[in-house]
Each structure stands twice: as C-alpha cells, then as structure tokens.
C-alpha cells in the first residue's frame, strides 16, 4: 500500500520547487532566453534592407570583424572597462577594509547605507554631473582659474580618463559590497594567529587577509567589468559621442542604420568577448576561488 508514483511525485520536493519557480522561470524564458536566442539566430541571417532574410550566413561576423571601426570600438570598450574595473576596485578595497575592520560593528550598516545612497540617485544626472565637474567652464576649471592656478582651462572631457572616472563613480558600491562581504567572513583569530606566529601586520595582510578576501575582489571585478563594457550613457555624455563604445555601436546598427543582423552580430561578438575575458580572469584566479569555497 503505497501512494501512486504520480501523486508521490506531485508531493515531492522537486515538484514543489519547480512549481514554485515556474512563474518566474517562464517569464525569464519568454522575455530573456527567447530574445537572446533570437539575437543569436539573427546574427546568422541576411540583411535585406529593413527586412531580415531567414537564410544562414556568417557574412555579418565577417563584415563586423573586418571593419576597423568595430575592432577599434571593441578594443576601446574592453580597455575602458578594464581601466574602470581596476580603478574602481583599487579605490573600493580600502573602504571595504575600513568598514569591515575599523568601523565598530554597530556602525557598519550605517556606513554601508551611506555608501549605497548615491547609487540610488538618478544615474543619468550623476553621469551628467561629472560633465559639470570636468567641463571646459566646469567646476574644476572655474575653481582653478578663479584661484589663479591655471590661465587657460584644462581639456578634461571627451577622454578615456573622463569616461573611466565617471564609471568608477557609478559602480563604486558594486565593488565595495562584495569585498566587504568576503572581508567580514574572515575569522579574526586567523589574523591574530598570523601575528602570533611572528608575521608583521603588513605580511599578515599580504599572506592572510588578501588571499581570503580574493573571492570578494574577484566578484567585484566581474560585477564592475561586465556591465561597464555595455554602458551607453557615459560615452555619449562624457565622451561627447566621439569615443563610442560597443553599446553605442549596437544602438547605431540596430536603430539608425537598421541593419539588425549586423547589430546582432556585434552584440553577440561583444557578449563573447566579455565572456572570454571574464572566463580568462576567473581561470587565472582559480586557486583563490577554491580557497573561498
């Protein structure tokens, strides 16, 4: 006398789990997985001026990759993202360390709150404010001129450096939070043990704290690198449209030129480059991730 297999499965944990996740999963399938698959398919279709011809071709990829402008833009995107990531993570680590190790426990969530507030205010306006700060007649130039330090204004906008600093500002909390979490997980007695075994503070940091914080650092790198490579607003506003990145190119191909297969090929290529760079980075740091688990 035991329950029928179907009733038993219906009551099983697996069935309940799938049932529960299904509304969200179906939504993601229809509006994420299916569109991504479509983009992938489009990238192998022919463009017939305003219509898409459903015929297999690799011409879009050949066109895209043989175009020096595309290669320049892609290279610039990776370079800017890498630069932004480096700057953001380097600037964020000491803050995460400060909150985790120096700030008393009762104040920690207040500090985290303080750091997340700017993140929740209009992204566009935040980006634009950097234009205000770095502009020809902007805050820095007018201040420096007013103080008589410089005679003619400095040209700061429309540069990769300006793009980088704007994005580093935008993604700051994304870098701080994962590093903070992994620092919080470190058993404080390990550090005391390190010093007890005769290591200096600096060596303890180097040999104990940093390796244990690496999973968080790696997480921070991924979470900053991936979205920044697809940023559209900053190159437009801060780069003045003269230093387009891959998102701007996708937008142009898709909407302005309306060559969807080519746009799709650019998008897919960009995703593959992001994935490849990310995987390479993870592979180079695999030993830290093992420790982390």
């Amino acid at each position: 006398m035991s329950a029928s297999p179907i009733r038993r499965w219906a009551r099983s944990e697996a069935a309940s789990g799938w049932f529960m996740v299904s509304p969200t999963l179906i939504y993601a399938m229809l509006l994420l997985a299916a569109p991504l698959a479509t983009i992938f398919a489009y990238s192998f279709f022919k463009d017939g001026y305003l219509v898409v011809i459903h015929e297999f071709t690799t011409q879009n990829y050949i066109d895209a990759w043989s175009d020096p402008i595309f290669r320049t833009i892609l290279f610039r995107s990776v370079l800017v993202s890498a630069l932004v990531t480096l700057v953001t993570v380097l600037l964020a680590f000491p803050i995460a360390y400060f909150i985790s190790f120096v700030v008393p426990a009762s104040n920690k969530s207040r500090w985290l709150f303080l750091i997340t507030i700017p993140f929740w205010t209009s992204y566009l306006i935040r980006v634009f404010q950097w234009k205000v700060i770095l502009n020809f007649n902007g805050v820095i130039n007018s201040t420096l001129q007013g103080l008589g330090i410089i005679d003619s204004p400095l040209q700061m906008l429309n540069s990769i450096g300006a793009i980088a600093i704007t994005l580093a500002h935008a993604y700051a909390p994304f870098a701080i939070l994962p590093i903070f979490v992994s620092l919080e997980k470190i058993d404080r007695s390990l550090l005391e043990a390190g010093q007890d075994l005769g290591e200096s503070k600096l060596m303890t940091f180097w040999r104990v704290t940093l390796p244990l914080a690496m999973p968080g650092v790696i997480g921070a790198v991924m979470i900053v690198f991936i979205p920044t490579i697809g940023d559209y607003v900053t190159p437009e506003l801060i780069g003045g449209g003269k230093l387009p990145m891959v998102a701007n190119m996708i937008q142009k191909d898709m909407l302005k030129i309306d060559n969807k297969p080519l746009g799709a090929a650019v998008a897919v290529s960009a995703m593959f480059v992001v994935a490849a760079v990310s995987l390479l980075f993870l592979f180079l740091n695999r030993r830290f991730l093992k420790v982390g688990k």
Binding site: P35, I226, G230, A247
Partner: peptide, 22 residues
C-alpha cells in the same frame, strides 16, 4: 533555473534592451 532568472544582473542592459526590441 535560478541562473537564468538572475542573469540580467551580469548582462549589459543594452543586450537585454536590444534583444527584447528585436
């Protein structure tokens, strides 16, 4: 399943936007 649902966290928004548009 959860990976797919959480994917937009690590996907550049332009990709989400473009693929939905298409």
């Amino acid at each position: 399943a959860m990976g797919l649902i959480m994917l937009p966290l690590v996907l550049p928004e332009i990709i989400v936007a473009v693929s939905l548009l298409v």
